[in-house]
Amino acid sequence: MGMPPTPYTPDPRRSQAWIPFNTRSEQPIVTGTSVLALTYKDGIMLAGDNLASYGSLACSAPRLSVTIPSYTIFGASGNMSDFQYLQHDLDNLIIQEEVTAQDGHQLGPKQIHKYLSQVFYARRSKMDSLWKSVLGGGFKDGKRFLLFVDLLSVTYTVLTLATCYGVYIAQPLLRKAFEGSEVRKIKEDWLHVLFYRDPRSTNQYQITTISAAGPTISPSLKLETEWSFAESIRGYGPQTQ
């Protein structure tokens, strides 16, 4: 038998169009879990914990971001490296668009949303997705805007949003509680529930908001938790049966 077939022959003419299979990400590696977002009276609020998981190995990393001096905040679940790549990409975009031009034409959340959907669509069409979901929010010209983009570039805007486990645990609560109550309290309740139920989450979290007053991002906060109930649950604690 002759030479084994080479899986990939470099062809400089097609270097852009054809990426060797082994350089595409097939699955997320270091992941972040749920991010929650909602629209409130004055703007948009995002919350997410600070955990990056490598399988079951945990480390701390922020998952929320503010694009300065634009009008957009965003958070992501999924591959952390893709999140950081996107942070850089947006930073560069902002530098190019706003700092260099300095002509008063700033990208608002709607423009950033379209841009993200283009970036994600281009990557998924190369079968090389950015393996993550992004939630973002913005406030510009008196209007609130909450956005979503995922690895397939499926996009939409809604009033409340959640990713990962949050879709099942928090989103129903979000929608139910949406009218009225104090938003920050709601957020913390959801993070509690998520922390109790999602093994790939932590009780260290951040909250970021954007309103007419501009973006804010909290330092790392800690949820007070109560685990004594676990004693009485079968499968937890010292019970042997």
Binding site: M1, P4, P5, F21, R24, E26, Q27, R124, S125, M127, S129, L152
Partner: peptide, 12 residues
Amino acid sequence: AIVHPQQRHFNP
């Protein structure tokens, strides 16, 4: 030589 193409996980 008999390595088969692998099922790709990503569904676009």
